[in-house]
Design a protein around this nucleic acid. Structure first.
Lengths: 380, 380
DNA sequence: TCCCTAATAGACACCGGTGTCAAAAACAAG
DNA sequence: CTTGTTTTTGACACCGGTGTCTATTAGGGA
């Protein structure tokens, strides 16, 4: 094969191009109308011998149409393979059929699972999903989002944590008249639609398991300040301690930032204590992975000498060894639920189904191999 | 707080709703035009005292306009905060401004990185990204994609591996007149635009490192049949062996499917050999993680007694312990490059920049802690 | 000053749908 | 067979932009 030779040439060509690229500015002049055209509503109308408005009524499931006409038109539509142009509909409806997903990449798997949940929900509808990652750090984040929303005018926006907690952002959505659903670890106090999960309860459940096994000194690696999820998980942890009449020593609580490196830092602190904990709860899997790396590096056996629990049930949880006991967030379900909630204003009310502004979906404790009763013979 | 009580109620309400949801069918009748309207091109034209066509020319950077008029109109646009309605433009242009990303979730991080690359490229353009996961297994996958493409009519589609290798899909795109760029591990033989990376070379480089360190028995965990990437990586591996006059014993080559479980299975086979390998190359990080789990479970020290190399540089690579030596795929760059390539037909030709149909971007070998020279004293 | 050409701006139809309202058809009752 | 009422359909304007083609203006040379 000439793969090698060709490859080098191509590489060279590209290397010279990369970085030199100009901004993408589309050239309207280049419209090419030679390609075979889609049938339009006019074609359908002509072939069915009715007016385009009648066809429109069929498309939109209008009740004001006789069954005979409807059937006739539907047959023509099918025979032509007619698909209504969403841009034209959007224009005429003065509303488009886009849902925006704004996220800040807390965890790729989370984002993608959520995306998939949303897509489950809108699968057979006319809606489409527009994805927009946000740079939380950037100073003109709000301005970027404003431009995005004004340009695309989505029917509404789904806000993944942590940006779901950004009140400036929700205020922006309101001022632009863009509906939104916040996704969060708890029912938020602010008004507006929200989908959350019962993390606090499930974290408490997980920690109670540790306590029942006999653990008394349990380390806690907290999530970053300003993240509601971090607070929720901490509260669940404290709930469990309190219900067992335990308290959390200051030295056993370390703050992290949901990144692996903060997990390793925290673990170094916790595991160098004279009286080191027999178990550590990390507020997400990534930090738990960091804790585990340090433990293994120090020759501390997991779970025999140290139990570890994480949170998220990310792929990492099963990729590390021993596999991580953790809490699964119903993220995909939250995705499809929040999509439904977002568009509920446009749906016909269904008998016996409320359309609440809040929804709480159940998280689940997932037991794997990183937890065991504390060693009774541990040297101290 | 009443959080608990409220939470239970909400949960109950939702539990009864979930699953009962009807399909999402939007109701056109409910159009609500009470909200404050965006300014339109007519408003701008009236305020600037010119015709709407003139405003249109300004929006589209037409050359046929005097600087004075342009400046005047631009000022009015800015003062009004006018943003052209993309749906209307799409309709008038007979082309919309959407790029479709079709993927099959080989790896969430990969998909998301790619997405971000695409978004880097289209950041300041009028384009938006439409994401569509595909269910490769599903029998009506092609039909789903067809409906999606006909409905949304994106300007073009980006095909992530492994679906980039599906010839039925590319044929479908062609028949629908949808441009596409395939993303692949190698320049594909089929016609059409393609962005790839030099995986074969870099895998060979990685394996040569192992050989230089003294490894002679190197296990290989292959990717699944039918994946071009799997073949590429295998070829690179073989290249390295051949250039060192080594051959791959049948027993040292095990087929996997890119999932962690196939990694553990492969490792059990390889590590139970009488003369077990001193190093294992796994065709992706996930399988490498499986190999490492088995090694650690068997008490085999990594990297002292077993070196492991993965591929992808997924988050897993740094989450496992020891951290995984691997190959980084330039996925984000490929994303933005492929987006440029997709729309290049609409861009004005730039002096000195070719617009090739193929591009190859460099992968990179990433050294971490899972590789070391073979133990000289290993019992055999 | 006049004429010719090039540069610039505008009028109008059109993209493919939907809303409105009036006309036509179907049906019921007298 | 009318008349009145309800159901079904269609004509036409409109959503917010762009393409085409013509009208206007500006500039230059005789």
């Amino acid at each position: 094969m000439n793969a090698n030779g060709a490859a080098s040439t191509i590489k060279a060509v590209c290397a010279s191009n990369i970085g030199k690229r100009t901004d993408i500015i589309l050239m309207p002049q280049k419209t090419d109308r030679s390609s075979s055209k889609q049938p339009t509503i006019n074609d359908v109308a002509a072939l069915a011998g009715v007016s385009k408005k009648t066809v429109s009524r069929v498309i939109n499931n209008s009740a004001l149409i006789s069954d005979k006409t409807r059937k006739n038109v539907q047959e023509v539509i099918a025979s032509l393979g007619f698909v209504p142009n969403p841009q034209a509909r959007a224009l005429a409806f003065r509303r488009n059929f886009l849902i925006a997903l704004l996220h800040d990449n807390p965890n790729a798997q989370t984002v993608l699972n959520f995306q998939n949940g949303v897509l489950d929900a809108i699968k057979d509808s006319d809606l489409a999903l527009l994805v927009r990652p946000i740079d939380r750090g950037s100073s003109d984040m709000l301005e970027d989002v404003r431009i995005f929303l004004e340009k695309q005018r989505p029917i509404g926006a789904l806000l993944l944590p942590p940006i779901s907690e950004n009140d400036d952002l929700t205020a922006l959505c309101q001022s632009l008249g863009v509906r939104y659903v916040r996704i969060g670890s708890t029912a938020l106090d602010e008004p507006g639609k929200c989908v959350s999960s019962n993390d606090r309860e499930v974290v408490a459940e997980a920690c109670r398991k540790l306590i029942e096994m006999g653990h008394r000194r349990i380390g806690f690696v907290r999530g970053p300040e300003g993240f509601r999820s971090a607070r929720e998980r901490e509260l669940g942890f404290l709930d469990a301690l309190h219900s067992a009449d335990l308290t959390l020593a200051d030295e056993l609580c370390v703050k992290g930032n949901y990144r692996i490196d903060s997990g390793t830092e925290a673990a170094h602190k916790l595991l160098s204590l004279a009286n080191r904990p027999t178990a550590i709860f990390a507020s997400n899997d990534e930090m738990a992975a960091g804790v585990m790396q340090v433990a293994l590096g120090l020759g501390i056996k997991v779970p025999e000498q140290l139990s570890i629990i994480g949170f998220d049930d990310s792929p990492t949880a099963t990729h590390i060894w021993p596999r991580l006991t953790t809490v699964r967030w119903p993220i995909r379900e939250m995705g499809s639920h929040s999509a439904h909630m977002l568009v509920s204003d446009f749906l016909p009310p269904v008998e016996g189904i409320d359309q609440p502004e809040y929804a709480m979906l159940p998280s689940r404790f997932v037991e794997r191999q990183s937890v065991a009763p504390p060693a009774t013979d541990k040297g101290e």
